[in-house]
Amino acid sequence: MSLDAFKNRNIGSQNYVPVNIENYPTSGWDKFKQVVKRGVGKELFVGLWVVLREMLKFKIHTVQYPSEVLPIGPRYRAVHKLLRLLESGNERCIGCGLCEKICVADCIRMDTRVDENSRKEVVEYSINLGRCIFCGYCAEVCPELAIVHGSRYENVSEQRAHFVLKDDMLTPIDFLKQQKEFSGFGALSPNADQLVKKTPLAY
């Protein structure tokens, strides 16, 4: 294929509306006329009237942040959270290291060891927010839905590191009931149950 198809600028019969833009004034006298027209002509009073009208109606659209917060979509990718299992309260993270591997900014690190029950325990987990690009791969690759993106975008502290050590991200055990299931990237689809293929049992 040649590039001719792309070079064709004929827009055809689509719903385009040509905008009529006046030419810029060139001489000094024309410029002066334009200023006077816009400054003391009716254009100024149109704007003032719109503001006065809306003020008198008391229909104000401004969100009263921070006392009022808009809801945020599940796919928003803010600072990460580590979730717990809802029934037992155990940490979901099994320390498989897939997030560490997939991270394009190479900003995730974890320390693992054998715990008292000879299971793999994640002792420390950290994300370097200075490098994180919030791409969401870690949440998407996590097989246990343990590392997810939260919706908290207000972060104030002296150091970025204060949000992304394991203790900061992990759901506190007292707040287990308030923990919400993540439904952003990487979450199970609503029909996941129907997609599971079961192993036929011979016995």
């Binding site: 099994i94 320390g95 498989c96 793999k120 293929k197 192993t199 036929p200 011979a202 016995y203």
Partner: peptide
Amino acid sequence: ECGVCDKSGACELQNKTLEFGINCQDFSIR
């Protein structure tokens, strides 16, 4: 348990399973 297995990533069973495209298990045993 590849998620926690020490061999994961350097496992010959993983490699060969992928190589021969075994993506589901048709049978099992007690």
